[in-house]
Simulated scan of single mutants.
Amino acid sequence: MTTPRAFITGVGGQDGSLLAALLLDKGYEVVGVLRREPSAYAEALAPVEGRVTLLEADLLDHAALVASLRETRPTEVYNLAAPSFVPRSWDEPIVTAEFAAVGATSMLEAIREVDPGIRFYQASSSEIFGEPRETPQTEQTAPSPVTPYGVAKAYAHFIAGSYRRKYGMFTCCGILYNHESPLRPVDFLPRKVSHAAAAISLGLEDELVLGDLSARRDWGYAGDYVRAMWLMLQCDQPGDYVVATGVSHSVEELVACAFDAVSLDWREHVRTDSALFRGASELHDLVGDASKARRVLGWEPEVGFRELLTLMVEADLARLQAPAASS
């Protein structure tokens, strides 16, 4: 049998690294695309170092994408590249639109030119639902994005479906809800919390300052979610899938679980600052119904909410203690 070959854009991010590791374990050859030097993604790429062929390419450079696809001849393309920190999309709306929306179109056109038989995964997002018209959300829920990130992701979601319909291409969109791991950067809330809990328990920090503790999200484990990406491209027919736990948790619950992992009372170490509240940009009632993924893909999340926070705190403890152990 021919060895399957995957082409992953955004391989230097949390999802890209975890997906690459999963595919390598399944016997794939993996080509990863980065926008910058590999050293800029050293921490995320550490688990797959030396096992992934890395290319520097820009999604907006269509000719370079075509050349890369012709050179590597993948059987599957996973388009994960896009600015991922949602609040920053208000500061960089043009960049967000270019890479999340135009970049996806550029990749689809490159695939169509090189080999329309390549199977394509587009990283969609619960942000396309914005202030949802129903809860929980399914694949049939009408998109109603409110952030530049959500709007750009909605465009990419629709264009992938358009290429499926117009050209018969095998395109799938994973409508992923919030998913975390120890590979998340610390500017994302769950990692900010896990890092702080670990640092405070070690006496390295004194307090954690957060915004609205009542804000809620449907949080899952990123390792479970990249497995759903792979499963989508193994199906007989292409389609779109909500990937979520179906349960929302408040920021307060998240904080409590993280501090429980180091046997601390979070109320003694956490304070809120109204300046950090998102106000009108805060989204509500985003909870996904992954019934289709369970039914069609046989997918189930394996890591629960409390287990996820414990995993992240333990990873941050190990990171923070590593310098002391080596000195």
Rank of each mutant, 00 (worst) to 15 (best):
S281Y: 13
V193K: 10
F170H: 11
T3M: 07
A100T: 10
G298W: 08
L202A: 02
R112D: 08
W90T: 07
F188S: 07
L80F: 14
D273Q: 07
I175G: 02
G130A: 06
V226I: 13
E282M: 06
H62R: 14
S263W: 09
T310G: 15
V303G: 05
P143L: 06
A110F: 04
V102S: 05
Y155C: 11
G298Y: 08
D206L: 00
A6G: 12
G32I: 03
I111P: 02
V209W: 01
T2H: 12
S106F: 00
L18T: 12
F170L: 08
I159V: 15
W266D: 04
T105W: 10
L108Q: 02
A100P: 06
T141K: 01
L210E: 07
P301N: 00
S124V: 01
S162R: 15
S162G: 08
A40W: 12
S126G: 15
L108N: 01
S214Q: 13
R227T: 13
A46Y: 09
I8R: 13
I118P: 12
L22Q: 11
R73S: 11
L65E: 07
D25V: 00
R216F: 09
E43R: 15
G50Q: 09
V270M: 01
R319G: 03
R191E: 14
G246F: 00
M1S: 15
L231F: 01
L309F: 13
Y149A: 06
W90F: 15
T272A: 11
A101T: 12
Q140I: 09
F85V: 12
W299Y: 10
H62V: 12
L264D: 07
L320G: 00
A100C: 10
L231S: 05
D206P: 00
E98W: 02
